[in-house]
Simulated scan of single mutants.
Amino acid sequence: MASVEHVDRLRMSDLVPVPPDLFRRVAALGVDIPDLLERVGLSTAQSTFSTAEQMAFWRTLAEVAPHRDIGLRLGSEKTADQRNLAEIAASHAATVEEALQRIARYKRLVCAERVTVARQGDEASIQFRWVHARGPIPHLLVECVFAAVVKLVHDASGSALVPRRIELARRRADAALLEGHFGCTVAFDEPQDRLVLASEDLARRFRPQRGEIYAQLLPSLEAALDDRTPTFPDEVRDVLRRHMVGDAVTIARVARDLALTPRTLQRRLSKEGTSYHALLDEVRRDTALRLLEATSLTEGEIAFFLGFEELNSFTRAFRTWEGTTPRRWRTSRAA
Rank of each mutant, 00 (worst) to 15 (best):
W321H: 08
A133K: 06
T250E: 08
P138D: 10
S159Y: 09
A203I: 10
P233Y: 06
R328S: 13
P208G: 03
Q46T: 13
R327P: 01
H6S: 07
S199R: 07
F314E: 05
R25L: 12
S47W: 00
A215P: 07
E123L: 15
E299Q: 14
T44A: 15
Y214F: 15
E322K: 15
G75L: 03
Q192R: 11
M1I: 13
A2W: 06
A124E: 05
A99Y: 09
G307S: 05
A278M: 02
L178W: 01
V239F: 00
F305S: 04
P326K: 02
R11P: 10
H132D: 13
R119H: 10
R207P: 01
P19F: 00
P262C: 09
H6K: 03
H132F: 14
P66E: 10
T116R: 07
A86G: 09
T60C: 11
M244E: 02
L10Q: 11
L225N: 10
R330Q: 15
R205T: 14
D227C: 07
T320W: 04
R207D: 07
A90S: 13
A147F: 07
A62P: 01
L152R: 06
R114I: 09
D69M: 09
A259S: 14
L218W: 02
V283E: 10
A203R: 14
A93K: 02
G71T: 04
T79G: 11
G30Y: 07
E190L: 03
E200R: 14
L29N: 08
W130D: 06
P163F: 01
F304N: 04
R290T: 15
I126A: 09
G211C: 03
G273H: 05
A173D: 15
A80I: 14
R83D: 09
G121V: 09
L289K: 04
V64R: 06
R165P: 10
W130H: 13
Q46K: 15
V18R: 14
A294L: 01
A148Q: 15
R194T: 08
L217H: 08
I103E: 11
A175W: 04
T324H: 00
G323Q: 11
R256L: 14
R319E: 03
L291P: 00
I126D: 06
D247C: 09
P138Q: 05
G273E: 12
S50V: 02
D247F: 01
L292C: 04
A93T: 05
R284T: 01
L202M: 12
D238N: 12
G180Y: 06
P262S: 12
D14Y: 09
V96G: 00
T250C: 06
S270E: 15
A99W: 08
A224V: 06
A156M: 02
D247T: 15
R73D: 11
L197V: 07
E77N: 13
V162N: 05
H92Y: 14
D286E: 13
F206S: 01
A148I: 02
V117R: 07
R242M: 05
T250P: 08
R39M: 11
E63W: 09
R256C: 09
V115N: 01
V149Y: 12
A259T: 14
E200V: 11
L161I: 08
R108D: 06
A65L: 06
A104T: 08
V131N: 02
H6Q: 04
